[in-house]
Design a protein around this nucleic acid. Structure first.
Lengths: 217, 217
DNA sequence: GATAAATAACTGACTGGTTAGTAATTAAAT
DNA sequence: ATTTAATTACTAACCAGTCAGTTATTTATC
């Protein structure tokens, strides 16, 4: 490096950063318009490159889809696990952290559009769907089940079919995210405050899971 | 030729039946493959006609989409309302009928794929989405709110934010339908029994909504 | 009641626009 | 000078929507 004039010229060649820039652009557009309706030209343009460049890093549109999931979501799961471990001794608190943490780390971000995306395209891209189930849905449910089981063990929650209840408890979270990325965008719906929604949900579930008062009917 | 074979010949012209046959074919395919991935040639073929015929009855692919919603779902809402009126004096029973009726009349049928469809395409077809919100989602929620309010009035359910709680209670129903039409199809997931799922959900909600025992904390 | 004319339902080849993916080419870095 | 990054121009396939023409059914005429 003899001379230093590079500050002005736009940096052109960024092999390391490109994949991340492209998956970020793809995530935005996939979430916004759906997978099928998103043109690879657009993805490239939003990342500031041409379509040809995109093909230097990803073999196909489907490969890009898979990368979006892998880069975007898989790391979040691990973060969530750590968050919960901090309250492993208090199941009620753990449940609360799950709900609000899910929203803070995932639902409220751009990633919150991924459930919509995956649900729509699962049939058309079975391999991506299987990856998503294995790496996201099952670990996420396992984490929820951990919360429930711990509550039962501590005598705070009553015994339930935890397989079914984990499914049921994930639903309002996913629904909140789906709603935001579908009808809330195009139809003027009475604005729903996520915090109030989660608070109501937490309240409902806590009472629904509470052990029946001492020997009561 | 002299011989008469007219009884054998398939009836060709069925002006009255066509739209219904076409929307039925479209529903199946839209649910199965998604709106964007469904070709109108396929829809026509499944209805036993050519693509040209489809355009005699529907102006565009979007118009067909709208017709699928209108013909398929809107009538169900009215059916649901009647079902609930039969138990207007018993809120717990009403809630139970809502959950299981929703599944029987809607979720378990082919129409159960429509929420997935609408969620995916709401952004791309705002007019269809607005119609769906107005004619399906809002009436459906109003019906649920009726159940809750009646329960509160009768002193069976505790007071809650019924706007938020209706949303929350719809979520596990929709989730069940979405699941069936996405991941359950392409990934070998441990089979989830809808009846058991609904039973668990009903149990959870009933306890979650119960008025706190006489003055208890 | 047979035949012809008119109409309604339907067909399938075609068009025009779109887009995933490729190949030829240029620019930059070492 | 060679390798790597990126662009541009291209291709091949796809599909919504059209339309000139065909077949079936109804109506009119004798």
């Amino acid at each position: 490096m003899t001379d230093r004039v590079e500050t002005k010229a736009p940096v052109r060649r960024r092999k390391e950063a490109r994949p991340q820039e492209l998956t970020a652009a793809a995530l935005s557009l996939f979430v916004e318009k759906g997978f099928a309706a998103t043109r690879l030209d657009e993805v490239a343009a939003r990342a500031g490159v041409s379509k040809g460049t995109l093909y230097l890093y990803f073999d196909s549109k489907e490969a890009l889809f898979l990368a979006v999931i892998r880069e975007g979501i898989v790391p979040i799961i691990e973060e969530g696990r750590k968050l919960l471990e901090a309250h492993a001794d208090d199941p009620e608190r753990m449940l609360r952290e799950y709900l609000f943490g899910w929203w803070a780390l995932f639902g409220s971000t751009e990633l919150g559009g991924v459930p919509k995306l995956m649900t729509s395209e699962a049939q058309n891209f079975p391999e991506v769907a299987q990856y998503y189930v294995r790496e996201v849905i099952l670990p996420g449910k396992a984490l929820m089940r951990e919360v429930l089981d711990r509550g039962v063990a501590k005598g705070v929650f009553r015994q339930t079919n935890s397989e079914l209840v984990t499914h049921i408890l994930m639903a309002p979270l996913l629904h909140l995210a789906l709603w935001r990325h579908s009808f809330a965008v195009c139809c003027q719906v009475p604005d729903m405050d996520p915090a109030a929604y989660l608070e109501s949900f937490f309240d409902l579930v806590l009472k629904g899971l509470a052990v029946t008062p001492e020997g009561g009917k």
